[in-house]
């Protein structure tokens, strides 16, 4: 079974508290924006593969806050090596959620590697992530929503989602503003 992407991200960000969020380019950025804009969201519009490394640098710099990276399977595949780098640093406050529709959605829904069995949670486990999960229903979604806020990570959860396209919700593309407002919001 696969979940609706907007439903899943809304559940993860409900009552977000002090969660800091980095979103990977394409639909994950629209999904996070659709939950309501927040100065503590850093939306990527490019730099494919950079979402997890940004989460790493941020989690190391802010060890007392929780950092959530929301990205897609294609974006995570381009940044696979960063899972090994995160496995070395082991930031306890970092969670990565991969919205996995097994497609490159932004470019015409071509099949991605995960459609043919490449297991991103298994790769994260091999890289030394103490918590990995593959989520296919609402009870598992509730569990990882709790773990994102409390577990000793790093954790990576793959959420299997349906391949349909949700209406686009476009946040600002002004990178300087995204950077500066994020820093202001967390007081650095």
């Amino acid at each position: 079974m696969a979940l609706d992407r907007r439903h899943a991200v809304k559940r993860l960000l409900a009552d977000r508290g002090d969660l800091l969020v980095v979103s990977g380019l394409g639909s994950p950025t629209y999904d996070v924006a659709a939950c309501g804009d927040d100065d503590r969201n850093f939306y990527l519009w490019g730099a494919m593969g950079a979402a997890a490394p940004i989460g790493l640098g941020l989690a190391l710099a802010q060890p007392s806050r929780r950092v959530l990276v929301v990205t897609g399977d294609g974006e995570m595949l381009m940044g696979l090596g960063s899972l090994a780098s995160i496995g070395v640093q082991r930031p306890a406050n970092l969670a990565i959620v991969v919205l996995d529709n097994e497609r490159y959605g932004e470019t015409g829904m071509q099949r991605s590697h995960t459609a043919d069995g490449v297991d991103l949670a298994g790769i994260a486990q091999g890289a030394g992530f103490p918590i990995v999960a593959t989520v296919t229903d609402d009870s598992e979604l509730d569990r990882i929503a709790r773990e994102i806020r409390t577990a000793t990570g790093p954790m990576l959860a793959v959420i299997k989602i349906t391949a349909g396209e949700a209406p686009r919700v476009l946040p600002t593309r002004d990178g300087v503003d995204l950077k500066n407002r994020f820093r202001r919001a967390i007081g650095v």
Binding site: V22, F42, A47, G49, A50, A51, A52, P53, I54, G55, L56, G57, L58, A59, L60, A61, Q62, G79, S82, S85, K179, F182, R183, I186, V188
Partner: peptide
Amino acid sequence: GVLAGAWLGG
């Protein structure tokens, strides 16, 4: 990415 994240975090 790592250095961008570091800067976002101060």
